[in-house]
């Protein structure tokens, strides 16, 4: 789960960066960046946090 989260976090950045090459319009690049940001957040606060929450001491 942690590895998946890391891949999502880094993948989000790659999505944002790919916009620089896929289009020259500011709107398009902005959309790529926003999607990338959401994917990165899903990786960190979604997958990685979920992994640690599953082991949280208050659940034991």
């Amino acid at each position: 789960m942690r590895i998946v989260g890391l891949l999502f976090a880094l993948g989000g950045w790659l999505i944002a960066m790919s916009g620089l090459f896929m289009t020259t319009s500011n709107m398009g690049r902005g959309l790529f960046a926003c999607v990338g940001i959401i994917v990165s957040i899903a990786g960190s606060l979604g997958f990685i946090n979920k992994f640690y929450q599953a082991q949280a001491i208050w659940k034991k």
Binding site: G11, G12, W13, G30, A33, I37, I41
Partner: peptide
């Protein structure tokens, strides 16, 4: 604004990782 968004994506993606 797009340049700033790329910066935010880098912080959340690369720096976090």
């Amino acid at each position: 604004l797009v340049a700033q968004l790329i910066g935010i994506a880098t912080l959340l993606g690369v720096v976090f990782s």
